[in-house]
Amino acid sequence: MVGFVLIGVGFMGSPQIFVRFLALRDEKEINQGAAVAIVWTLLADSGAVLIGMVGRVILDGNLGDDTEDVLPLLSEYLFNPLMVGLMIAIVLAAIMSTIDSLLVLAASAYVRDYHQQVKNPALPDESLIGMSRITTIVLALVALVLVYFVVDGPQTNVFWFVIFGWSGISATFVPTITLSLFWRRFTRMGAICSMVTGFLAVPIFSFWAPSWPVVGPYLKKLTELPPAVAAAFIVGVLVSLLGNQDTASQEQADDDLNFASERN
């Protein structure tokens, strides 16, 4: 139960959510955006849970072992074939929308945030279009191959894939974004080590940690997200405390933020 409750931790550092706030026109829209995001999340998550509860009652145990079929089975039970097709199309459209958003986000993170900003700062934006398309295709193919390797495992339901991917995003970015916003001593190397730790900790706590003696069964019930996020936080703090403080970069970042606030 604790592991399921802590799934919400991912919202504090999810890149696909933060980019929406970065796109706001001014600071006055922050509170409005936060309110809309919270209300929408409550409605969507509550609706998903209620569909499962109502489906168990109406279908009277006819779901079988694959309880993820509750939505199409419930639609088939309540509506005519035209509405069933429409409901399935809506679900598939939402899935495809999420997939292409994450692919574009991942490709832009590599092409612009790393290849241009870090490796080649003088590279013009126009030259990134072709590389972005190639990177998107490569990431899609890599994801497809990974799915084929994992699909034969003992946990192959859609919920497991969603939680595993969500845990990877959360453990990689939540500690870094949180510490960047609320801790001035957080360093560049601390951020890098924190993201790497969170990214690697998710498969470790998912595939290998459950077999550890004594603590393994407890980690399995806790799921991989909470310990992976905790490990990333700890590593980020330790590396920042033990490393050199880059005060010049911190002052430059503060100046940039103050300049942006004055313009708005």
Rank of each mutant, 00 (worst) to 15 (best):
R25K: 15
G55F: 10
L63V: 12
L242K: 11
E224S: 05
V174D: 01
L225D: 03
S127T: 10
L74A: 09
F205I: 05
N157S: 07
V237A: 04
G216P: 07
D254H: 12
G52R: 15
K220C: 07
E126Q: 10
Q32H: 13
P203R: 04
N157W: 03
V5Q: 02
L24G: 10
T172Y: 01
L123V: 04
A89Y: 08
R25V: 04
P121R: 07
L22Y: 15
A122Q: 08
G168E: 01
S206V: 03
T187C: 09
G13Q: 08
D125S: 05
F173G: 01
I134W: 01
W208M: 06
D255N: 14
T41G: 11
G52T: 15
L105I: 04
A228R: 05
L22V: 12
L6A: 10
A209H: 05
A34E: 14
P124E: 07
A34M: 15
L219Q: 03
G33A: 12
V229S: 10
V162S: 07
I30D: 11
K119P: 00
A44T: 15
F205R: 01
D60N: 15
T135P: 00
V162F: 14
F164R: 03
V202F: 02
V174N: 01
P217A: 06
P175G: 07
V202N: 06
A260L: 12
A253C: 10
G13H: 09
F164P: 02
A48Y: 08
L219I: 10
F4D: 08
D100G: 00
Q117K: 03
A232I: 07
Y148E: 13
M83G: 07
F182P: 11
L63I: 11
I169A: 00
K221A: 11
L24D: 10
M96N: 07
F164C: 01
S206M: 06
V9G: 04
F18V: 15
F164M: 03
R263A: 11
F11K: 08
V49A: 15
A230P: 03
F79P: 10
F199R: 04
L242P: 05
S211R: 08
M131F: 01
G85H: 06
T176V: 12
S46Q: 14
A209E: 02
I7W: 12
Y218Q: 08
F199W: 07
V145A: 10
S170M: 02
L102K: 00
P227I: 06
L43W: 13
L139T: 02
V91D: 08
V150H: 13
A230K: 05
G243Y: 11
Q116K: 09
Q155H: 08
T176L: 04
S101V: 02
S194W: 03
I169E: 00
P210H: 04
G168R: 00
I192S: 04
Y110N: 01
V147Q: 06
A171L: 02
V91C: 11
A232L: 05
P217D: 06
L86N: 08
K220D: 14
L123H: 03
L179F: 07
S75D: 08
N62D: 15
L222Y: 06
I30N: 11
M96F: 12
Q250H: 12
L200H: 02
L146R: 04
T187N: 07
A260Y: 10
A93P: 05
D125I: 01
I99S: 00
E29A: 15
S180P: 03
